[in-house]
Amino acid sequence: MTSRSDEELMAAYARGDAAAFREIFERLSPILLRVMRHQLRRPEDASDLVQQTFLHLHRSRLDFRDGAQLKPWLFTIAMNLKREYFRRASRKPESPLELDGRADPSTGNDEHHRLEAADAVEFALSKLSPEQRDVISLHWLAGIPLPEVAQMVGASLSAVKVRAHRGYAAMRQALGESSNPEVP
């Protein structure tokens, strides 16, 4: 049995297939949550924004057109909600301070290493400008190609490439050239 594409699932959901929504959520919410947690101070705010994003996906389901790609569509909603979150809270984009597992005494060794790596990435992301962080989050964490990232952030492809290039360079510098092979 072949699995349906994101777009087929969304089309099915727009036609009333509730199970398709669950599948969309299971596929895309972990990535979305990961991106949001790298951008917001509090994990519960990240969860709230993911919840809001999927609520808006539901409200906008009849706007989804053939030929559109679901992932950039959904992430554009998320990024708009995130902008609104920062505007409403009169806060500048910041990286989380409550880092996964840092204060968790029950963390095992392997997990501890994974979380240490996550903390390092968060530290590196915190060194970026908000514009660079948006591009890096969408490109690296969410796996969205740069041309689509450009559409989502409302900038030209060349401008986004420059932000990505400088952002990755800043991250490598923050982490040290050899200490984090995860960074592309």
């Binding site: 919410s29 972990p30 969860s47 993911v50 919840q51 999927f54 609520l55 539901h58 906008s60 706007d63």
Partner: peptide, 28 residues
């Protein structure tokens, strides 16, 4: 935790009922 989040989303969508919910769900 993903299940809990999905339950919250489902609950929020469950509240999308009535005329206003239908109006805002219309195509743009």
């Amino acid at each position: 935790s993903g299940d809990a989040l999905f339950a919250r989303v489902e609950a929020a969508i469950g509240e999308e009922r009535g005329l206003l919910a239908r109006l805002r769900s219309l195509p743009t």
